[in-house]
Amino acid sequence: MTPRRVVRRIAASALIAVVLAFFAVPMLWLAGAPFDARPGLGLRWPDWTLANVRATLAHPYALTSLANSVLLCLVACAVTTSSAALAAYALSRVRLPGRDALLYLLLLLSSVVTGTAAMVPIFVLMLQLGLIDSRLGTALVLAGGLLPAAIFILKDFVDAVPRSYEESARVFGASAGQVLGHVVLPVARPGIAMVLVWSFVNAWGNFLLPFLLLRDVGRQPAAVLLRTLQDEGGSVNLAVIPVFSLLYSIPVVVLYVLVDKRYGFRFHGGIKS
């Protein structure tokens, strides 16, 4: 090996090490800090204890907030996936003038609709509907924000389902519902699995919407509660935050692993007949 190549290899390895450390440090903190007798914001070998776990479980809102998160996400996820599946099927099969423009417009507006810019009108709307502090109402707003992108993603998957499958089922006498349920949705399943996980993760991590629409701390999801975890003195509650963060990250990881194992993410959406 020439000296030049040695230097290049060393430089490349060093760069990779730095990037790796950048991602690994928070992960290691999440693994160590929850079980450390004196958790801090730095990374160190923990003095093992379960006291933090007990403190977190004893916290009046920690577990309720996680339950709230699950509820919000399940509703948002179910509404998004089912509506997106129906809308994607319709948009894929019905010839509509200006359909593509409509889809792009939806996608464009959706980032505005649930984005920060539209927060005030959304808040006013929900206030007038009497849906402030309603978890269901918040879930619907979350779903509304996710829907355009979900339709956009799913339409590609439904487009890839050959029309002859549906026609074949129709010749056998299948009704529209049977065609959808027996043929189109199962064949587009990888896409649906993907939208399911994607919408769940998005709703799970959303802070701003539930923060604005849910004022009662007993109804707030984990993402919002995390911000308010302080001890009596007003400083950051380092006994609860690490354990809570760990609990907070588990569902998403589990969901991802489960769905990946069951369907295997196929982002390209190609279906071989």
């Binding site: 050959p162 002859s164 499958y165 026609e167 074949s168 010749v171 056998f172 027996h182 043929v183 199962p186 064949v187 399943r189 279906i271 071989k272 007949s273």
Partner: peptide, 12 residues
């Protein structure tokens, strides 16, 4: 009954 050119067998 009809057989399509691509056979349209349901892959799942």
């Amino acid at each position: 009954a009809m057989v399509f050119q691509d056979y349209a067998l349901f892959p799942h």
